[in-house]
Design a protein around this nucleic acid. Structure first.
Lengths: 329, 329
DNA sequence: TTGAAAGCGGTACCAG
DNA sequence: CTGGTACCGCTTTCAA
């Protein structure tokens, strides 16, 4: 079933059917009705590939994330979807699981689908990535990585500031032996979140920091905490790179019979919903995923009303809850 | 940049370029190399829409879920993705947020994209839905809803059995005043999960059950538990339609100063990862998302090796953890 | 207001 | 092994 069959049945040309379906031009009421009826009867569904091909573009944008199982990424995706739908766009999602190779593959897939715009919410900074994106004409948004260019917008969170707020807060509570739980993508020497924690060691001479990394998941957080506590049971605080891993870490801590925050404090990062629902509720840093998603849509979807920034920096806020307290040991 | 430009640059025909790119036919080594170089230099990326159009199909399958924020659905999606990728397929995801209207829209979108197969992991059973799917030629899998037909496979979980195990277990622990937390899609009189709980009232004459429903989320679970406990503070057990809502319910219970399971027992359903990481760890019923995802792939992706069933029924297992205990009040 | 026809960017068949 | 070319299904001038 294609346009032609519908046209034949409605006794009009394919051009007219197309016009009706896209109400792109004035069509007489009676013919329009005939066409609609034919469409109904035939259960005709336009071939979107053909449409995109003819139009030279697809009314969809691509979103690539590092780990869709982490609610942080999912929230951004959902926010983008909301914005996109309200503009009549669809969103195509791809997940890299932090693999640089998969990121390249995903970018090619999106380009191959001729998305109108592309958002890469990923940590896997890779030279290949730059090469790959360089020279495509579509608008691109990078989150937290890369530098702005002509067609590339960069949205960044000031992780440094966020982490500083956290470590400073813990230090002021008397914590002197801390652990840092990261995931593999935060191992790189350029990663802000891990860095800040490590650098604070030099700022506070009496502070000691251990580091451990595992995969970005509940289990990963748990294993990392286990490694940390096995190596040094005297830790009084564990700083986690994100909320998801923090929840995993808390599980391990409870398992060891330690109380949070009396025996040990835990912090997350992102302020996902789960941070309010876990026990104890997690002290964290808020990253406004809704706003980020909205910004992405403004940049990627052509819109006369808004003139998007070329770069934006978010200063995240500390959220104090029940997982942190004074160092008592 | 299209095939023709590449062809011109490599001084061959578009047919040859196509052959090289799909290594679909023998091509001399030197010409192949020339083509590859041209592709590189031009950074040529094939237009997937054109390809799908020419081939008459797309190497991708569609997955529609009710609520991607619920890890249950996400897990199935991920499992499908894994299976699909290993067969060289992409997967397109759509989320309905339990809206029947959105489901119809999503189905049309998938059909419009000419997916090779479609999986609907949704609870929104609707007459429109049947009409919509009836007559498309592609293979379709329904989860938990609808009846098998020629091209429609049905995967079902025996919720009844699962819920019976749960209520029986709670009853045997002495619970006589229970609450049921559902989400809006489980309100319908045909829904197995809610039904079993309600029906058990008649099987156990001394059992009382209250029902409450809210949206399928952590907050929804919390609000529903709040309503339940406000109406009847003497409840000794709260049975939740799924783990996500159970975690929300537990939050509310803690907030009221009640202990789990000493003061009140809580059960979930699905056995998502979070059920092991929340506090206390959740007693639940395991639904094998990996297996379901794998089955979906077997049904939707043409494969000579496996001959998929037309219908499958899963008998889910009880998972005892720390959120349930004897009724002490 | 409508129809005819030229693409859009590939694939695949048919010759050579 | 390679080139020419007829589609695939839809949009969009250009004419009528």
């Amino acid at each position: 079933m294609n346009l032609e069959e519908v046209a034949r049945r409605a006794k009009v040309s394919t051009a007219t059917v197309s016009r009706v379906l896209n109400n792109a031009a004035p069509v007489k009421g009676t013919t329009r009705a005939r066409v609609m009826r034919a469409v109904e009867e035939l259960k005709y569904r336009p071939n979107l590939h053909a449409r995109s091909l003819a139009e030279g573009k697809s009314r969809s944008i691509g979103v690539i994330v590092s780990n869709i199982e982490n609610p942080f990424f999912l929230d951004i995706y959902k926010a983008v979807e909301t914005g996109a739908h309200s503009e009549g766009y669809e969103v195509l999602m791809a997940n890299t699981d932090y693999r640089a190779e998969q990121l390249v593959t995903s970018i090619r897939l999106m380009i191959g689908r001729r998305v109108a715009g592309l958002a890469a919410i990923v940590s896997e900074m890779d030279p290949k990535l730059i090469d790959e994106l360089n020279g495509y004409e579509i608008p691109v948004v990078f989150y937290d990585v890369g530098v702005p260019r002509q067609n590339i917008t960069s949205i960044r969170v000031n992780y440094r500031r966020g982490m500083e707020k956290l470590t400073h807060y813990l230090y002021s509570l008397g914590h002197r032996r801390m652990g840092f739980v990261g995931h593999h993508a935060t191992l790189g020497p350029i990663h802000e979140r891990a860095n800040v924690v490590l650098e604070s060691v030099s700022r506070y001479p009496d502070l000691e920091v251990q580091t451990e990394a595992d995969v970005d998941s509940l289990e990963g957080g748990r294993r990392a905490a286990r490694a940390l506590l096995s190596a040094d049971p005297s830790l009084t605080a564990i700083v986690c790179v994100n909320d998801l891993m923090a929840v995993g870490a808390m599980r391990e801590i409870r398992e060891r019979g330690l109380r949070i925050p009396q025996d040990i404090s835990v912090t997350g990062f992102d302020n996902i919903k789960l941070a309010q629902f876990c026990y104890p509720a997690l002290t964290t840093v808020h990253i406004p995923r809704d706003q980020i998603g909205q910004n992405i849509c403004e940049v990627l979807i052509p819109n006369d009303k808004t003139r998007p920034e070329h770069e934006m920096l978010i200063d995240p806020e500390l959220v104090l809850r029940d997982s942190t307290g004074p160092a008592l040991r």
